[in-house]
């Protein structure tokens, strides 16, 4: 057992337990944050994606030791931001959400991509979403939503 700290959704928090525990389990079981989903549990589907120091990472593969003193932002934390609102609206406008299971991960992937590349091409968007599976939309609507939000006038990114 170890007691460590990390930054969760911009607040310093404590974790006590085995440092090989997966961040995903800590988010869901210890902090009651259910936005990050378990899909494959092997890093292939992206349903558990979170922002780790502003970059997309799969929380199902991240041991707590990697998280000590680092910044984690889940979809819950991100949903209070202006950028989130813009992505959400664009996803709604383009029908990019159907069952919704992949959506938190897709939005995290969008934010991670736009942080590095504010005006991505369609190819770059596909690369940015390479680790996020969606079984409903066929991806085109998600790609359209990301193109639209990245072409806004107000330069959020």
């Amino acid at each position: 057992m170890s007691r460590v700290e990390f930054i969760l959704n911009e607040k310093k928090v404590e974790f006590e337990g085995d440092l090989n525990k997966r961040l995903l389990d800590v988010l869901r079981d210890d902090f009651g944050l259910f936005g990050s989903k378990e899909g494959c549990g092997e890093g292939e589907c992206g349903a558990c994606a979170i922002l780790f120091n502003d970059e997309i990472v799969n929380s199902c593969l991240l041991p707590m030791a990697n998280v000590v003193n680092q910044r984690v932002m889940t979809i819950e934390g991100f949903s209070t931001t202006k950028k989130y609102k813009a992505i959400e609206q664009s996803f709604m406008d383009h029908g990019a959400v159907q069952c919704g299971y992949c959506t938190p991960g897709m939005i995290i992937a969008t934010e991670s991509l736009l942080n590095k590349n504010a005006k991505p091409t369609e190819e770059e968007i596909k690369d940015g979403l390479a680790g996020n599976l969606c079984r409903c939309t066929g991806y085109n609507m998600i790609i359209d939503a990301i193109i639209a939000v990245s072409r806004r006038e107000d330069d959020l990114w």
């Binding site: 090989n20 525990k21 997966r22 995903l24 890093g43 593969l61 991240l62 041991p63």
Partner: peptide
């Protein structure tokens, strides 16, 4: 363990349980 992307998959356990490293 470095990034853990191989170790965590190889030692995967049920959800909520500690990986079997």
């Amino acid at each position: 363990i470095a990034g853990g992307t191989d170790v965590m998959v190889k030692n995967r356990n049920w959800s909520g349980l500690i990986p079997r490293v």
